[in-house]
Amino acid sequence: MNVRAWLCALILLLPSALYGQGYAGLGGSAEGFDVPQPIYQFEFPRDHGPHPTFRIEWWYLTANLTGEDGRDYGIQWTLFRSALKPTEAEGWQSPQLWLGHAAVTTPKTHYFAERLSRGGIGQAGVTAEPFEAWIDEWHMRGLDLNSLSLSASGAEFSYDLSLTAQGPLVFHGEDGYSVKSADGQASYYYSQPFYDVEGALRLPDGDVAVTGQGWLDREWSSQPLAADQSGWDWFSLSFDDGNKLMAFRLRGGRGDFTAATWIDPDGTAKPLPDGSVSFAPLDTAPVAGRDVPVQWRVTLPERDIEVEVSAITPNAWMATRFEYWEGPVSVSGSHSGRGYLEMTGY
């Protein structure tokens, strides 16, 4: 099969691989693939790398940045791996599909780009030691996750950033086993939410030097959603007092399922079970032909948290092969800060 024919085949394969039951097919059958188990011994650097016997995996970095011009910016860099079969092979026989998303959000505009690749041919992949994740010329690399360089580009933007971790890895759920539904669907999930970031954005109106904070999520599973779960609302919030909150709501036909992690400034993490955090949309905006919540009230009574989370730029829509909203947010109310919001299934 020549390259052009293979690319056409990939375009046809991706919907069947990524769509189906649940949002983006993530509630589809895991038959033949490994599934997360409640007791798992993480091993690093091994687990920074890929897990090809699981169906879906991602390396997902977002950052809240401030420019030398005083304005707020956000960036996203994501590499997704989706497997057609729970094996690996060399060359064009590889069943691993790779998808890259990158974005820059300014106070007025949202720029994004997307890349597609097949595994096994060197165009995309991840190595654990030294760490490198790449698709085409986009890369996230370093000796390990403590110090990384990050780059990506699209038709109207590019960025080159340096990231330095100032705290430990954080494990979500029960020691990294993150339950996603009442039926017990789950993923392995950990984060590095303590990056200091510096570098430059290149935008149509000029280059901007930026500094800020970054948050990397690592997650893999084979069926992370129940079949009736149509999407999620995911928040990563960094408060000005040094505490952090990761929280999500999965929307399903049988009701919502929620989970969260409270993170102390020293990285001590406490998992919060279903029902601990409540989410209430306060305002919507017309985005890509639909009404999308762009302001929320997030409440965590256990920590006296009642905050309003507001999109910096309401039109931060990722019009990619599976569409979603992703952008930086401001936090006000009982606590102030900033963070990132991802919403799917709208």
Rank of each mutant, 00 (worst) to 15 (best):
I263C: 04
R254A: 15
N243Q: 12
E90I: 08
Y189N: 04
P107G: 02
T66D: 05
D304T: 05
L150V: 12
F42I: 07
W58Y: 13
E88C: 03
T313Q: 06
E68S: 13
T268F: 07
W134G: 00
Y111Q: 13
Q123W: 03
A83E: 03
S221Y: 06
E198I: 12
K180T: 14
R297Q: 15
F54H: 14
T53S: 15
A247N: 12
A319H: 14
L99G: 04
G345E: 05
G206N: 11
A5I: 14
P301L: 13
H51M: 10
P168V: 07
E88R: 01
L84I: 15
P130C: 01
H110C: 11
L169N: 04
W317V: 12
E323T: 13
L163W: 10
F194S: 10
Y159P: 03
A5H: 08
A319C: 06
R4A: 15
V331F: 08
V210F: 11
S187R: 13
A285S: 11
A311M: 01
A285I: 00
G27W: 05
M343L: 15
M246Q: 03
G333P: 00
A209F: 04
A247Y: 07
F235N: 12
V104K: 01
G199Y: 03
D196P: 05
Q37L: 08
F248D: 09
G339Q: 06
A30I: 09
G91K: 05
T109F: 00
G20S: 13
V294T: 03
D72Q: 14
F194G: 04
Q213V: 12
D183T: 10
A319T: 08
G255S: 02
R4V: 14
A24P: 02
V307Y: 02
A103H: 03
D69F: 08
D144I: 00
A5W: 05
L161C: 02
S236T: 15
P271M: 07
I263M: 02
H172V: 07
H335S: 11
R254K: 15
G253C: 03
F239G: 06
G28W: 05
T261F: 10
Q96C: 06
G337F: 13
Y195Q: 07
P204L: 09
P273F: 01
P107V: 09
S336M: 09
D47T: 00
G345D: 03
S230D: 00
R141G: 00
A200F: 03
Y40A: 00
Q93H: 06
T284F: 10
G275H: 08
S330A: 10
L225D: 11
E57N: 09
G91A: 09
Q295V: 00
L14I: 06
W92S: 14
L169S: 11
R290L: 12
E219S: 14
S162G: 13
F322S: 15
S310T: 15
K85P: 08
E156P: 03
I135R: 00
A260V: 02
L282M: 08
S222V: 10
Y177D: 09
D72T: 13
Y195V: 09
W325H: 14
S191H: 02
A226P: 12
Q21C: 06
D304K: 11
R290F: 06
D228G: 07
V170L: 00
T258F: 04
G253R: 06
P314E: 10
K180N: 15
D160W: 01
V179P: 09
L150M: 14
F131I: 04
A311E: 01
P193N: 06
L150G: 12
